[in-house]
Design a protein around this nucleic acid. Structure first.
Lengths: 224, 224
DNA sequence: CGTCTATTTGAGCATAGTCAACCGACGTGG
DNA sequence: CCACGTCGGTTGACTATGCTCAAATAGACG
């Protein structure tokens, strides 16, 4: 039995035997959500885990006072809901039509228990989530506005490098970027202008950026 | 066989049977490090996990450019090195004489695999680490200097509430606080002065703060 | 072509950073 | 015992970065 092809492009399923893949397939549900739809509501009980097949999601956190912190953007192959707490700590909304694989968390964890490969993969994913959050923490704590923007652009660039040329597509709005980097939209806009004047990027359109000097961009973005 | 008393005050060991505790005791090493000593070096391979018995540790991250982000302070009962990656993402240094329980990571993970209670506990700890990091991320992204300081004071206050009165002890230096909150020492100092003038705190000495109005402090600190 | 929304730009302001002086605690050595 | 130096912390003056408010512009879409 050959598992669906989409299973393969995700790190979660790397190195699994056919039997393990069959078990996963058995508990895997397909789900498709449209742009702007909410997948996970902050403080709801964590009942599912998801793998993004296609599309883009935004993970965010809202405070009582209405302030918002965007935690991450998730693309094809990313994992959602791999929380170790019983409640989701964040909301997840889609930025455009998104296709997902959905697993009941309890069933998924049971399978993870049975397969050492799957366990290692899941552990690695959890580690990457934390590592990525620590990178962002460093950027917010130590970097100036234009450097934070480089951090985001470099991150997206790395994600999309295989897909095409040096152009990157920014699916999210300026407000989303601002809330991700701990800035205002105006400052984000000025940061774009600054990187443009530094000849690091070209602003093809508001949502399409061309990287002109990736080395310096990465240097400014660097958190190591 | 009664396990050593120190095992009990840590969430990691909650609800374990005597046999599980005996297994843990068998692989547990005691370690004592003095103030300023480094326990973990950034980018070294993750070979051990630790539980703090007494003392205080600081978890930090250094970049090539010399900038530093303090990630957390760890006190009695906290866990160190519960990374899911093969390398430590951070350094850990002690702020004062510190006593630790040390486990070989591989052996520890093997025991975790065998005990569902221990597994649940370890998972919860991982979740708390991420939750705490997300709180800090929110504070750095969305809060002003004096609010960030409230965030730290409230956090330490909650930690120490059982121990004594409303006084809290700040073991770390102003520079450590600054690098934790993404500020400079001067701004931290002014933030202290501001909270004092707001009558939220009393500065008994540079490293001893008395909370005068915990409700407002918590309100300013709140990330929810 | 007009309307709506997202984004950019500008002017002024507030917050935090920089640089420098100062203060107080502590320890050393005369 | 006191003068001196060091270190960590505070305070002040000035600067720069980013925020606020407002206006202009650019697309998207009917």
């Amino acid at each position: 039995m050959k598992p669906p092809e989409t299973f393969f492009h995700s790190r979660l399923f790397r190195g699994l035997g056919n039997e393990e893949l069959a078990d996963l397939t058995a508990i895997c549900q397909r789900r498709r959500i449209s742009a702007g739809e909410q997948l996970i509501k902050q403080h709801s009980t964590a009942q599912n885990v998801y793998v993004v097949v296609s599309g883009t999601l935004m993970i965010e956190r809202l405070s009582r006072s209405g302030r918002r912190q965007v935690i991450a953007f998730a693309y094809s192959g990313d994992y959602i809901g791999f929380t170790n707490t019983e409640e989701y700590e964040y909301s997840v909304v889609s930025l455009r039509e998104t296709e997902l694989q959905s697993f009941v968390r309890r069933e998924f964890l049971a399978l993870v228990d049975q397969s050492s490969t799957l366990k290692a993969n899941a552990r690695q994913i959890g580690g990457n989530v934390l590592a990525q959050t620590l990178d962002q923490l460093f950027a917010l704590g130590q970097k100036k506005a234009h450097e934070r923007l480089c951090f985001l652009l470099a991150q997206i660039g790395r994600r999309q490098c295989g897909t095409q040329n040096a152009d990157i597509e920014l699916i999210m709005s300026r407000q989303d970027i601002a809330d991700y980097l701990g800035l205002t939209i105006e400052t984000v806009s000025r940061a774009f202008a600054r990187l443009k004047s530094m000849k690091l990027i070209e602003i093809v359109s508001a949502h399409r950026i061309r990287i002109l000097d990736n080395a310096i961009l990465e240097e400014l973005a660097s958190v190591h």
